[in-house]
């Protein structure tokens, strides 16, 4: 029974593959739409990086929230599945956070004239990136699975709580980012629909890729855990 269940969770299922496939397809369509979108009035063609930067950044923070949720779930329920998903979320989130930083810096150079600006969102992302690097390193350093899961959950929870606090602290420290494209508090949309639609297509595609990659990573982790038990 035990074996059957672990095989069930570690099977590379069709759902994961189709999510990944759909995400890849969506990303290709989104890329084409972004490249054919009209250039920005102020920034010209440079602004097209917006179609990658914004969705990638959203996913990075989505990953942070998901990791927080699954880490709390692990500490409450103590199911190793929750720990595996949290770890997968952080690892995939780390990639997206890295992409956010790189695309942000590439965009900053032509528009602000510098690669790095001590701006709240940029700095907060860098801090979160550092926290997740610590998360991955600590996971690699602890061998006992239960101890590893608990420590990782602790780091993820403390790290996620840190996001609003460090955001506020850097914001008071200094500020130069563009206004957000969609004001989350009022729901007002600040960009043209011709530019918005490719961005949303990309967002959907990256979300699918994110979910697919997390599933894939969790399946690999489950197989590893099953092998260690044998």
């Amino acid at each position: 029974m035990q074996l059957a269940r672990s095989e069930q969770t570690s099977r590379l299922d069709g759902l994961t593959m189709s999510i990944l496939g759909l995400g890849g397809l969506g990303a290709a369509v989104g890329f084409f739409m972004a490249m054919t979108a009209p250039p920005d009035v102020g920034q010209g063609f440079v602004a097209r990086i917006f179609h990658v930067h914004v969705p990638v950044a959203w996913i990075a923070y989505l990953a942070s929230f998901t990791a927080l949720g699954y880490s709390i779930a692990y500490l409450v329920r103590r199911k190793s599945r929750h720990d595996r998903v949290a770890a997968a979320t952080v690892e995939v989130g780390l990639i997206f956070m890295g992409l956010t930083l790189v695309t942000g810096m590439l965009w900053a150079r032509p528009t602000w004239g510098v690669y790095w600006e001590w701006e709240p969102r940029l700095t907060t992302s860098a801090i979160l990136f550092a926290i997740y690097v610590g998360y991955v390193v600590v996971r690699g350093a602890i061998e006992d699975p239960e101890l590893r899961a608990k420590a990782a959950a602790g780091i993820a929870i403390l790290g996620s709580i840190n996001v609003p606090i460090s955001y506020m602290s850097v914001r008071w420290w200094r500020s130069i980012h563009q206004t957000q494209s969609i004001d989350l508090s009022t729901g007002r949309i600040m960009v043209d629909t011709a530019i918005l639609i490719p961005m949303l297509v990309n967002l959907a595609a990256f979300t699918l890729l994110f979910v697919g990659l997390v599933r894939l990573r969790s399946i690999i982790a489950a197989r590893q855990a099953a092998r260690e038990e044998v």
Partner: peptide, 23 residues
């Protein structure tokens, strides 16, 4: 406390600690 029983804790501790205490 979390890393107390871990071997490489001297280096892991600052790695975890510094990003969090930035504020």
């Amino acid at each position: 406390g979390m890393l107390a029983r871990l071997r490489g804790r001297e280096i892991l501790l600052p790695l975890l600690l510094f990003p969090l205490v930035i504020p």
